[in-house]
Structures are given as structure tokens and as C-alpha cells.
């Protein structure tokens, strides 16, 4: 089964990052504190469902849906 990505979280839902499925953007995401093992929580989405605001590493990070879809979650 394919694992879920951060883009599929529901508002208020928590999950733990397991890895990434992109070879480009993950370095930037890691620098910003999105590391495997960290808890990520979806805060709210912009009106058109994109971008999305997350709680990660103690602050508020916003990502485009396509960027969030690179973050894999533990099931």
C-alpha cells in the first residue's frame, strides 16, 4: 500500500513524517525542520485548498499542496 502524504491530512490531524518521495524539494523541507520522525499537523488550508499551513518543529510552515505531497507519513 502506498503511504499517505502530508497533503492528505485533515485539518487538526497529526502524523509522523516517515520520508520523502521527491528528489528535489526534500532538502529544503529538511532544512526547515521537516525531518523523518517529526510530528506534523495540518492547521488549515487556503481557501482554494492550496497552499496548506502546518505545525512542524514548533512553528507554522505553509506549503503548496504539491510540496506537501512529497512528505510521506507513517501509517
Amino acid at each position: 500500500m502506498l503511504s499517505r502524504t502530508a497533503a492528505e491530512l485533515k485539518p487538526g490531524e497529526n502524523a509522523i513524517i516517515s520520508g520523502f518521495n521527491s528528489d528535489f524539494i526534500y532538502l529544503k523541507l529538511m532544512e526547515m525542520g521537516c525531518l523523518p520522525g517529526e510530528t506534523i499537523r495540518l492547521n488549515f488550508t487556503a481557501p482554494l485548498g492550496d497552499p496548506i499551513s502546518y505545525d512542524i518543529a514548533g512553528y507554522n510552515l505553509s506549503l503548496r499542496k504539491s510540496e506537501a505531497a512529497c512528505i510521506l507519513l507513517q501509517s
Binding site: F24, I25, K28, S53, N60, L61, S62, L63, E67
Partner: peptide, 11 residues
């Protein structure tokens, strides 16, 4: 070049 958004929402 790929477009990156990744932005902090400050308090």
C-alpha cells in the same frame, strides 16, 4: 527551474 513556495507563517 522549479517553483518553490515553502514559507514560514510568522506569529
Amino acid at each position: 527551474e522549479k517553483s518553490i513556495f515553502i514559507m514560514e507563517l510568522p506569529t
